[in-house]
């Protein structure tokens, strides 16, 4: 008895799901090349557009990957598969670990592809910058992973597409993934409480030469992480008790 087979199956299933693949991978890439490809030499906030947009799109794509992975729980619930699993020795923690793992693997593929896309448009960073950016993205994705698991227990498969699409778009807009944010004072204060803002900043603080994100960033991610984890536990309990 080992969980390796189960984890592998979860990853294999993720990569066989074409729709998921297209939205999580192709969508950010297409937007990236459409905008940055046509304006290679433009600058935004004193940075080259290819670099600026790469940091935004990498956060956007990775966010879709981890949210979608957890959200697929909704389909498994509808199939009755979660009930079937509950009469096997599989532990709940392993079930969720597999979802998190497959989401992160998918996110890593997206991240690497976006880095490659950036490089083809002339983005140059040193190894340390690439590594720190990736590490920060991994941390910043935690609340979104939990959000996916939450969505998987709250939504029906029918509403998943619009819900995930809408929420990720809103998060992307509020975080400046697609372009500079309005600099209204209150607006900036509010936006800094949104986890996706800091997910996008994972790339920007590093790439723009600023080093590590401020304490504020870690606090926002931690608070969202803890709150969403609590909620996910409540929703999971409610879901399994009702049967």
């Amino acid at each position: 008895m080992s969980y390796a087979t189960y984890l592998r199956c979860e990853v294999v299933r993720t990569f066989r799901n074409r729709r998921f693949f297209v939205f999580s991978l192709a969508f950010p890439l297409i937007i990236y090349f459409a905008i940055a490809g046509a304006n290679r030499h433009a600058t935004v906030e004193e940075v080259g557009l290819p670099l600026y947009l790469m940091t935004g799109m990498v956060a956007f794509g990775a966010m879709i990957a981890v949210i979608s992975s957890g959200a697929r729980i909704a389909t498994e619930r509808q199939l009755g598969w979660t009930r079937q699993l509950r009469i096997t020795p599989l532990r709940t923690s392993t079930y969720f670990a597999a979802k998190v793992l497959s989401g992160y693997l998918m996110a890593l593929v997206t991240i690497v592809l976006m880095y490659v896309a950036g490089s083809t448009l002339g983005v140059r960073l040193d190894a340390r910058q690439w590594a720190i950016m990736t590490l920060l993205l991994i941390v910043g994705l935690v609340p979104f992973t939990l959000l996916g698991i939450l969505a998987g227990h709250l939504l029906k498969p029918d509403s998943l597409g619009p819900a995930v699409g809408g929420v990720t778009t809103l998060f992307a807009l509020l975080s400046g993934a697609w372009g500079p944010l309005s600099q209204g004072r209150y607006f900036v204060d509010v936006v800094k409480c949104v986890p996706s803002y800091w997910l996008v900043q994972s790339g920007r603080v590093v790439a723009f030469g600023g080093g590590w994100p401020p304490a504020e960033a870690w606090i926002v991610i931690a608070v969202w992480g803890v709150a969403l984890a609590r909620l996910a536990v409540v929703v999971y309990r409610r879901d399994t008790a009702r049967v």
Binding site: R13, G80, W81, I87
Partner: peptide, 14 residues
Amino acid sequence: VGGMLQTGSLLEYL
């Protein structure tokens, strides 16, 4: 324990 429930579909993509 092994069980076969009355309803339920199979996991997809396998």
